[in-house]
Design a protein around this nucleic acid. Sequence first.
DNA 1: GTCCATGTGAGACACAGTATCAACTAGAGA
DNA 2: TCTCTAGTTGATACTGTGTCTCACATGGAC
Lengths: 147, 147
Amino acid sequence: MTVGHARGGSLLTALSDAGARVTEPRRAVAALIGAQDGHFTTAQLLTAARLEYPGLGRATIFRALDLFTSLGFVERMDLPGGGHAWVACETAHHHHAICTRCGRSTEVDDHGLADVLASVAGRSGFRVTTHRLEVFGTCASCLAATA
Amino acid sequence: MTVGHARGGSLLTALSDAGARVTEPRRAVAALIGAQDGHFTTAQLLTAARLEYPGLGRATIFRALDLFTSLGFVERMDLPGGGHAWVACETAHHHHAICTRCGRSTEVDDHGLADVLASVAGRSGFRVTTHRLEVFGTCASCLAATA
DNA sequence: GTCCATGTGAGACACAGTATCAACTAGAGA
DNA sequence: TCTCTAGTTGATACTGTGTCTCACATGGAC
Ligand SMILES: [Zn+2]
Ligand SMILES: [Zn+2]
Ligand SMILES: [Zn+2]
Ligand SMILES: [Zn+2]
């Protein structure tokens, strides 16, 4: 499995490139993430871990998630209810369209959003440093299944 | 103080309009929210409550926050770090530009964003039901203060 | 004023994430 | 290959945030 392969290297090679060790627990977390379909919550990941890698520590999973996030291979997103979920990412900066029915998420690029942000900045004198956009709805295949 | 006055009525009148009781604790929470400058975290609100309204229950504050949210007078937003904050809102649907220096937030309307969402839908066959945009940066007055 | 659905506070609880620390190990260098 | 050490790990305890329960209180309709 390869998380973030679009960036040209596997997560594990990226780890050593970043000076971080390629350890057995990190391999396990990477495998768990790769096995997830669409976005996943920490709870789901922890459950999967308990089954497939008993002995893998809770804290280690959170630490790996943080590390992978800082490397850009995974991204945290905010669910409408207030909880958090994660997605394995392919590209540097983007947003997610999350299907509330099947849970899969599609990446959305910034096309057009930059203009929106520019107009926010222009009108108010606000200097934008970060932004976050999340889109929720129903994906094409779930729509087809319903119809 | 009036929260959400742009909608034509005070929060308290809206409560009775919605069939909810106008109680002393809810008045207190409304006053606390009105006294906040910009967005605020639950922790901040709880601290303020302990000072100004000792005896006001923790759960009651969360309940009031939920109620006010469902009435659209307050909105929960996601901070970059993963925590949550709240803002008193003036208009129905909008987004926030949050100054990471002074904490104030400005409302941002959907101008242009609708097009972005439409293009997301158009290209992928995704049907958008909800979305969330949050913009972080430095506000005009904080920029001026720094310069 | 009476009455009861609605709302309240205290405290127990569930859950997510963090801090600590002794033990372990990846991987660089001899 | 062997050694050594900084980086990493798992157990455990802990904090913080938000929820649940339930006996008690109260808003507001009548
Ligand atoms: Zn779907
Ligand atoms: Zn973006
Ligand atoms: Zn500011
Ligand atoms: Zn919008």
